[in-house]
């Protein structure tokens, strides 16, 4: 009961503290919000890239060109051979006519392919297998295996691209982490100064509190609460802005440029919220803890 009573009194004192120093509190919140938004935005963009990577199936495809001299039997046998290589691959036979039709669809009116379609013998495309695989791991070996089959003249694939995009998104994430580190330091510094100013302004009060028998906990708690309020409020604000950025801005860019699809915000909402709250509480508690400690060890 005593604890609860003290807690509410000290909670009130903490709230008073936030408003007593509203300029510095606002500065703290702004820096923290920026820090959270940068981490959040980078994280969400990287996630969107990865999501799309997995969805874009052309990345997980090997196209194998079949020797024009191969017979239907050869082709049937080869298809079985490739299918038996692994359980998580699918093999589709695409004859050169289908291939040309698909090409026409892709190209639209850019090139006139009518002439080739009219006369089968003019079709320059080879018959192909399209082999879909689910994981990039081992894709290289699969490619070698197919390439070495008789009656396969060549293969095309984008196995390397997956890795490149992965490297790029790791790079993006690294930049985000560094930016976040720097901003978090700035945020810590600003909050520390906010609370130090508060402690400094109240140093006489703190001295008197000691004379009447206030414990360290009693003295520290309002400052901790001040830090927690700043951190929590920043997290809420950043969450709101992030929601807007994601659903309006990022999604719009992705959609209007046809870069790919984007997952609904709800899918990551919890992670974003928890992450922001974590950053906010971490910064708030650490900063206020450090600022007040010096005054208590006297």
């Amino acid at each position: 009961m005593k604890f609860v009573r003290n807690f509410f009194y000290l909670l009130g004192q903490g709230i008073v503290g936030v408003f007593r120093n509203s300029v510095m509190s606002t500065a703290s919140i702004l820096v923290l919000v920026c820090c959270m938004l940068i981490v959040g935005t980078f994280g969400l963009v990287v996630k969107a890239i990865n999501d799309n990577l997995q969805r874009v199936d052309t990345l997980n495809v090997i196209v194998a060109y079949i020797n024009p001299a191969a017979t239907d039997e050869d082709i049937q046998k080869m298809k079985k051979d490739i299918e038996s290589y692994s359980t998580d691959i699918t093999v589709e036979y695409v004859d050169k006519k289908t291939g040309l039709e698909r090409l026409k669809e892709e190209m639209g009116s850019e090139i006139d392919l009518e002439m080739y379609l009219r006369d089968e013998r003019l079709n320059p495309l080879p018959d192909t297998f399209e082999i879909n695989f689910s994981s990039a791991e081992g894709a290289e070996a699969l490619n070698n295996y197919i390439n070495n089959l008789d009656n396969i003249t060549d293969t095309r694939h984008k196995i390397g691209l997956v890795e490149k995009v992965n490297t790029a998104s790791k790079g993006l994430m690294a930049i985000a982490v560094i930016l976040m580190g720097v901003l978090l330091l700035v945020a810590l510094f600003v909050i520390m100064n906010t609370i130090k100013l508060g402690v400094f302004a109240r140093r006489d009060e703190i001295a008197v509190m000691r004379y009447v028998g206030a414990t360290n906990t009693f003295i520290i708690t309002p400052f901790l609460i001040e830090g927690i309020i700043i951190g929590t409020f920043s997290a809420c604000l950043a969450y709101g802005i992030q929601y807007y950025l994601y659903t309006q801005v990022i999604s719009d860019i992705v959609r209007s440029y046809g870069i790919g699809t984007i997952a609904p915000f709800g899918e990551t909402a919890f992670v974003v919220g928890a992450g922001f709250l974590g950053i906010g509480l971490f910064a708030g508690i650490i900063a206020s803890g450090i600022s007040i400690k010096r005054y208590l060890s006297e």
Binding site: E205, A207, V208, R210, Y211, V212, G213, A214, T215, F218
Partner: peptide, 30 residues
């Protein structure tokens, strides 16, 4: 030490009151 201080009331030459609290609040604070 806080518990030691609660067994004694201390008074100084320079009063050492909370300047931002009313008379009532100063007394209530203890």
């Amino acid at each position: 030490i806080p518990y030691l201080r609660r067994t004694m009331g201390v008074v100084f030459q320079d009063f050492r009151l909370f300047s931002n609290k009313t008379v009532y609040e100063n007394i209530a604070f203890a």
